[in-house]
Amino acid sequence: MPNRRVISDHSQEPRLRFAEELRRLRIGKGVSLRQLGERLGWDWSLFGKMERGKTLGGPEVVLALEQFYRTRGLLLALWEVAAGDKPRFQERYRRYMSLESEAVSLWHFGVSVLPGLLQTPGYAEELLAAGGFRGEELRQQVEARVGRQELLTGDYTTPFRTILSEAVLRTALRDPDSWREQLEYVMEVVERPDVTLHVLPFSAGMYGLVSTDVWFLRLPDGRTVAYTENADRGHLIEESDAVEHLQRSYDAVRDLALPPAESRELIERVLEEAPVCART
């Protein structure tokens, strides 16, 4: 009789269960690792390592897989257990990510930082490092965040509208070259047909969403849900009256914001004013 495997607090079983599920889903979908990488925008070798249990990947790559396979929370739950720590996502955030995978359009308001869909690797690295990420975990988080931009660049893009406070564009990175690269990338992205960007200038004065980043998701059934977040927490809002209240605030902010053409001109001015790093 074979020896029974001992299950302890440090068992690798949850990690292996997660890896096995990833492989099962991919084979069931009929795609190779390379094809998966091409469709989601990550290096295919990362998915190979995840399927062999060599790495768990970051939350955003798991979210991308969740959306691709449409597992409605299963992969995120397995990933949390495999991580062996307290759950990374509250139930409402799990619900939000599930709904995001179904959304037919997205719109957003940013108070102080660019949304992940518009971030370059340099911007994402400095922002995540400021949030406490280090080493390999930081590298994975940056890779995962940039990979999510497949929503805007893939074959099946999701219409995306964002309003950015001028403060977002005036809060530069420490490295001048990285900052210029970020501004140039924003200028490139806003030329895409499914992306609309407004800048809310300082001259607009006070406004209703002064301390809140907010996302709205339009779902296939016509409903709209909202997700608000600050530095400490996020909150999913599905109640129609509360969502409508936020939408009115968002519409009021959009009325104060510059139209897309003038917004691009403002970004161009910020880019012209950005310092150039003289490398020796």
Rank of each mutant, 00 (worst) to 15 (best):
L209E: 08
L114I: 04
A64H: 00
Q140I: 05
G58I: 06
M97S: 13
P260R: 03
R15T: 10
E100K: 11
R34D: 15
L106C: 10
E272A: 13
H10T: 12
L200Y: 11
E80Y: 01
T120C: 09
L40H: 06
T71A: 04
E273N: 14
R139T: 05
S11G: 06
Q12N: 09
G110L: 08
G116D: 12
Q67A: 12
T153H: 09
E181Y: 00
L138K: 07
T157M: 05
P59F: 05
V104A: 14
A242T: 04
R180A: 07
K49R: 14
L16E: 11
K86E: 14
S101E: 10
L36M: 15
P193V: 02
L217C: 05
R23A: 14
G110T: 00
T153S: 13
R192S: 14
M1K: 11
S263C: 09
V142E: 02
A172K: 01
Q119E: 11
K49V: 04
G131C: 12
R248M: 11
R26M: 10
T157Q: 13
A82P: 08
L99W: 14
L173V: 00
R233N: 08
G116N: 08
Y123T: 09
Q247G: 11
E273F: 05
V146E: 05
G37P: 04
F18R: 05
T171F: 02
V270I: 15
E238W: 06
A172D: 05
G37R: 11
Y123M: 08
H245Q: 12
W79T: 06
S203K: 14
E184R: 10
E244S: 15
R94K: 14
